[in-house]
Each structure stands twice: as C-alpha cells, then as structure tokens.
Amino acid sequence: MYPANVAYHRASSVAEAVELLAENEDSKLLAGGHSLIPLMRLRLASPASLIDVGRIAEIQGISVCGDCVCVGALTTHSTLASSCDLQSACPIVPEAAALIGDPAVRNRGTIGGNLAHADPASDLPTVAVALGATIKATGPNGKRSICAGDFFQDLMTTALDDGEVMTAVCLPAIQAGQGMAYAKMLHPASRYAVVSAAAVVTVEDGRCAAASVAVGGVETAPAKASSVEAALTGNALDAGVIACASAAVADDLAGDAIDDVFASGEYRRAMAEVYVRRALTSAAERAG
C-alpha cells in the first residue's frame, strides 16, 4: 500500500524537533520509521506531518559512565545487538535486540522509536522495565526523566507528552553477582514476541539478593512480576526455586490478557510461566 500525503520537516537538533512538534499539528516523529511507516502504508496512521529526527547527532551512540549506560534514542537495534560496551555493561539488551524483527529491520529500527511506539509485543519495553531503565525526554518545558515502570501506560501509550522528544535511555550497568537474560516466544509471522520475559538476578553468597522480572506480550504493557521476584529473593536459585517462583507469575498477570488468532490469553499466561522460568534459569546461570 501507499502512505497518504504528508508534510515533511527535518530537524537538525532536539531543540528544533521540539519546535517543529509544537508548530505542526498532528505531527509524528520519524526516526528509523520501522513502526510508523508500515502503519502509514496500511493507512492506519496518516499524520499531517513528519518530523524527521533521524539525523540528530546528539541523540545517537552509546556511552558508559560508571554505573550507567546511556543509549541515544536513535541507536539502532543492530548497533545495540553488536555493541561491545553493551555486551559487557548490560548484556540483556544485545540479547533482546538480536531477536527483534530481522537483520534489515534491526538496521533501521531504533530503541527510541521502539520504546515510544510501546507495542506490547515488542522486546525492548520488557527489557527496559526489568532493568529499571530511565527514559530521558526533552519538551517545551525542558528535560525530564521517566522511569520505565511508569513509561509504558497502555497499548501504544506512553508517558511521553505530545510535544516531547525522547533523547536517551539510561540503563543500569550490570553489577558483580548479577545475571540477566531475555527469553522470547517468536510470533512466526510478525517476529514480535507472543510472550517474553526479561530477568535480572543478583546473587550474593549463593542466594538471590535481588531480582527484577518483567513479562511482555501478555498484557497491554510490560508487567513487572513482583510475585516472582518476592519468591526468589533470599533463596538459592536452583531449579526448584525457579520453577516455584515462575509459577507465581500468574499473580502478576491479573489483568486482561491479549488474545488473538495465534495465541489466546490463557495460553499467553501459561507461557509467561515457561518463559519466566527460561529467562531466570539463564540469568541464574550467568550470575554464576
């Protein structure tokens, strides 16, 4: 199909993008375009104008400073997947990024576009929630930070205001004794997640000191699995504990589950347990 007519503005800075957003009603930010252009082609989205932020240098690249990895919003999935910095500082991100779409999609799709699109079947939102990432945005009223847990509000709905531009995602760097892992059931057609789980565990003295688990694909936004986390904390992460804790994910998924041709809500809930278990098993192994 063919997109509807649209006006086009190219921003050369975040400030200019914010201005353009304010000046143009019914405008959409265009980065890699891999969420927006398919919608425009099917005419499910027909914005009046596009603000192309794809060339803004200041929101590209990955930098590690101390306990934080700062990823520019324009960083592509393939850059995430192949970044040595991320591989050592926050390995769950490359692991998940490598499972997005396909190589050509990863070459264009960006972390900012992905998070801002907030598709519940997307991979990075789940990872961001499990990591407790911070999303940086700039708007007419200046800069602000939003924690991932508050960022994803509903189906395709985030805490970003209409006039704001996401600039970066700050990820906590992996700590000694930590292991992290992402597990995903691929939809055979779309390559989105039917169900996915992201897990970060911290092991001290053979016991789980802290755990953070998020589940994607089941509800309209990534779900934090606090029951699972509670069942892990304080225990040795053996198969039995992990299995028991994973089963507790049912308590964390009390809302309406996504239900479609490929997978019912009931199945997604059941698979949440399986994929939480798989993610936790890998994370625990990696925690050593």
């Binding site: 099917l42 939809h187 055979p188 057609a189 779309s190 041709v261 490929f262």
Partner: peptide, 8 residues
Amino acid sequence: TGSMLDYA
C-alpha cells in the same frame, strides 16, 4: 490473517 504480519 490479512497481511504477512499475521499469515505465517
């Protein structure tokens, strides 16, 4: 299953 996103 109206597009390649749904028809596997």
